[in-house]
Simulated assay, not measured.
Amino acid sequence: MTRTARLVTLLVAVLLLGSVGAGAVLYAADRSDRRNEAQPGGPTVEAGPVSLRTPTGARQLVFRNMAWGPHHDELATVPADQPGGVRTASGVQCLRFHAAAGTGICLQAERGALQDTYRAVILDEGLHELKHFPAAGIPTRARVSPSGHLAAWTVFVSGDSYAGTDFSTRTSIVDTRDWTLQENLETFTVIKDGHPYQAPDVNIWGVTFADDSGFYATVATGGQTYLVHGDLAARTLTTLHQNVECPSLSPDGTRVAYKKRVPGASADSPWRLYVLDLATMTETATAEQRNIDDQALWSDASTLVYALPGDFGADLWTVPADGSGTATRLLDAAVAPAFLG
């Protein structure tokens, strides 16, 4: 190849790479623009005040709004008995969220030029920041205790899915009364089959609170997952039942909803939604037959709410907890709900 031919080839390559790079930037910008435009036929979202305290009898549903438009990713609210109504968006953005008794936990991304970082933000009833803590990875689960005194969050510190085995989590709990932080529940003692247990592969995620001292969570080790009862004062995690992930305690404290790996399911969609009676350890399969990769929420004593993939990223669905009925769509373009009031 002559020197002139080599120069022409190099010039063509540079122009081609420049075009590809410009196209990628324009594509990303177009996606960003579309996320900031309301989707035709999507839910109506309007800016307004959002409170984590509601008047007596005025039950509210607060959630992360997934609808494209200027309020994408913001905490929004609708009356619990009118989920299809106009959404009021707060201006506060969260990736994961939960709230109880006027306290909120909001897991946020801080966008960087080279790398995103994350933080766990404790919110007051007006969604004002009280305190924040650095989060070690990608947010995945969040819960507040019924009293509002404790908040927990789980992040992926490696990997980004529970479906495989190549992931690691970090779960933290903070007491909002004095800001005592349990930064990593892996420092707690695991009691397995009645004996202290240690292993380098222990992972913990999906806290659900019973009160201000006891909680439930998932412990994974040795290729198995376990429901554990946690004791904050004793700093222990005691195994109760096998094949339980992302538990959610019922309002009366007698049952746990959870996702369970079922035989014959594909490796990337292995879970179905079950309920465990804590007194008898009897499992009940719900009528939801699709793969559930979420920490379900009890909307009341008999109904579960959970997220499934949807046109805007995720939709919220409900199903009876006793195995009866059928799954029903509750809310389009929403995730990470909390029922208040």
Rank of each mutant, 00 (worst) to 15 (best):
M1N: 04
R3G: 03
R3S: 15
A5K: 15
L11S: 15
A13K: 09
A13S: 13
V14Y: 04
L16W: 09
G21L: 15
D30P: 00
V45Q: 05
P49N: 11
S51D: 11
R53G: 01
T54K: 08
P55F: 04
V62W: 02
L75A: 09
T77N: 07
D81N: 15
P83M: 11
P83W: 03
S90R: 14
C94S: 14
A99D: 01
I105Y: 03
L107R: 01
Q108W: 01
E110T: 15
A113R: 12
D116M: 00
V121W: 02
R143G: 05
R143S: 15
S147G: 08
G148L: 07
H149C: 04
T154K: 07
D160K: 10
A163F: 11
S168L: 08
L181V: 14
N184G: 02
T189E: 13
K192A: 09
A199G: 07
P200R: 10
D201P: 06
V207D: 01
D211C: 05
Q224T: 11
T225R: 13
L227I: 08
V228Y: 00
R235T: 05
T238A: 06
L249F: 04
G253C: 10
R255V: 01
V256T: 06
V256L: 12
K260E: 14
A265W: 02
D268E: 14
S269Q: 12
R272V: 04
Y274H: 14
L276N: 00
T280N: 06
M281Q: 14
T286W: 00
E288W: 02
I292G: 00
D294T: 12
A296C: 07
D300W: 00
T303Y: 05
T318W: 04
T326Y: 04
D332K: 13
A336C: 13
A336Q: 14
A336F: 12
L340Y: 00
